[in-house]
């Protein structure tokens, strides 16, 4: 890649995005937010992936390290424990990541539905305006007809 990034983007993400756009699956890609703080606040404002993704991968979650007289022993215990619970963590991680994807899709569908709703509202407004105009015209026609009738009578 020819890109020199400014830290906020990475080439693999560009490749993933390009793949989504190429295959017509852009709705499955999360819309990034310029506001970095927005991705850490709760509830996540219009973008769930950056908020949840960091908590999704339990398998590679690094445990906090503190110096302790028994630190070597504790580390050994941790290693053994990790080996035993890895299969469960793996399953949980897969579930979490798929849940993130589903949430993201739902969020994007909601956004597109909202957009559709806006368009529909605009259409309804335009139709209502047309209806008012048609009613005014029909009133004018009625008035004209009445005036013609009165003229005929007179």
């Amino acid at each position: 890649m020819s890109l020199r990034t400014d830290g906020s983007e990475t080439p693999p993400s560009a490749e993933r995005l390009a793949q989504a756009l190429r295959s017509g699956l852009e709705l499955r890609w999360s819309i990034p937010s310029l506001d970095l703080e927005a991705s850490t606040c709760f509830p996540p404002n219009a973008n769930v992936r950056p908020f949840l993704e960091r908590h999704a991968d339990l398998l590679h979650y690094s445990l906090p390290r503190r110096l302790h007289p028994l630190s070597r022993f504790v580390q050994g215990i941790r290693k053994v424990l990790r080996k035993f619970i890895s299969p469960w963590l793996d399953v949980q991680t897969r579930f979490n990541l798929s849940a993130v994807s589903v949430l993201e899709q739902i969020e994007q569908r909601v956004q597109s539905l909202e957009q559709t709703e806006r368009v529909l509202r605009q259409t309804i407004e335009a139709l209502e305006k047309k209806q008012v105009a048609v009613e005014q015209q029909s009133e004018q026609v009625d008035e004209y007809a009445i005036s013609l009738l009165t003229r005929e009578k007179s």
Partner: peptide, 19 residues
């Protein structure tokens, strides 16, 4: 836009257009 999506594709309508 693909290389800097955070700056150029942060809106669903723009993303669809660019796709």
């Amino acid at each position: 836009p693909l290389l800097y999506p955070r700056h150029y594709l942060n809106n669903i309508a723009v993303s669809r257009w660019y796709a």
